[in-house]
Amino acid sequence: MSSSKTFDLSRFAYSKGNSSDYTSKYTPLRRSSTTPSTSTTPQLSRSNTDTDTGIDTPNKSKKRKYTYEPPESFAQLTGVPDYMTEGCDLMLVGINPGRTSATLGHHFAHPSNSFYSCLYESGLTPTKLRPQQDYTLPVLNYSITNLNHRPTVTQSQLSKAESRAMVPELCWKVHKYKPKLVALVGKSIWDDVHFVFKSNSFNYDYRLDNKDKKVNIVEKSGDCDHTAGFLLQNFKIVHDDNNESLFFTLPSTSGLVAAYQKEAKVRAFKRCKQTLDRIKESSLDTSTMHIVDSVTLAQTFAHLDQR
């Protein structure tokens, strides 16, 4: 196995506050009403997908673009608490709190976010919960958390390095709460988790993995299905009691993610439920999955957390 990487979380520390006020350093300058402007504003290539919400854009003709901003830009935004239970069936993991969630103190709180509808319509919850009821998820033997704790307006205001540096903490949570299935709500979360996992797995072989990818090339259907990467991933965490935690990638439920309609997202959530049912029935073969060296990753977080 390749040597484990060390992640420095200290540079991403920030002070928590109580206000939701936020002014971006990228706020466009006001133009004179009498002097026409001939200059053009370069378009930023980063996505403006809200981390857990939809963002209202008053000027629809010129959508505001967002790019990375440091933690101090959001020091006045508070985070969102985890709601966890040990031995849970499902651990739901968001990207990070958006502005609405950070203001209200609840996960996936923006009205345009379809997270709770997807849970209900897929059969994962018996009723449609409101964001204010996120604390009741442990009653269903579910846990809910985020990969990154600090709030932003959009996901693109986090850096890749920052999100990847939070993977050891996620591994620590998986070790502590031992979920049967970890559902990552957003493909970008799996991109960051996979980047760390593939370098910290006992039986991961880049050559074999690349060979398998070439052999198992599947034509994309255009739907929110396994061909788009929304499926059970080929990695697992094995606990000291030999129970396992598997990983499933779900689509983002943000109202700004228009690549797939809500009905397609619900189908992905249904496949997640079917996978969870198979795990609970012990009818899923995990023998060929890559085993993550999660102990080392979890210890990395614990060491940094004690500094």
Rank of each mutant, 00 (worst) to 15 (best):
K5M: 12
R11T: 09
A13Y: 14
K16Q: 15
D21T: 13
T23A: 10
S24L: 01
K25R: 15
R31H: 12
T34A: 08
S37A: 03
T41I: 12
P42V: 06
P42W: 06
T51M: 03
T53I: 08
T53S: 13
T53G: 13
K63L: 07
K63F: 06
R64S: 10
E69Q: 09
E72N: 14
A75G: 04
T78W: 14
T78G: 15
E86H: 09
C88A: 04
C88V: 09
L90Q: 06
V93T: 03
S101I: 06
H107N: 09
N113K: 05
G123S: 05
L124Y: 03
Q133C: 02
D134S: 12
Y135S: 13
T136V: 10
V139Y: 12
L140E: 09
S143K: 08
L147I: 06
R150K: 08
R150P: 02
Q155W: 12
S156F: 07
S163F: 07
S163L: 14
M166E: 08
V167W: 00
E169I: 05
K176N: 11
L181S: 01
V182S: 03
I189V: 06
D191P: 06
D191C: 03
V193N: 03
F195R: 12
V196P: 06
S199P: 00
S201A: 00
F202N: 07
Y204E: 10
L208A: 09
K211G: 15
K211I: 14
E219R: 14
K220I: 07
G222P: 02
T227G: 08
F230R: 07
L231Q: 01
Q233L: 09
F235E: 08
H239I: 01
L250F: 02
S254C: 05
G255E: 02
L256N: 14
A258I: 10
K265F: 01
V266H: 01
R267N: 12
T275G: 04
D277F: 05
I279L: 14
E281P: 02
E281M: 05
S283R: 15
V292C: 01
D293S: 00
S294T: 07
V295K: 09
T296S: 14
T296A: 12
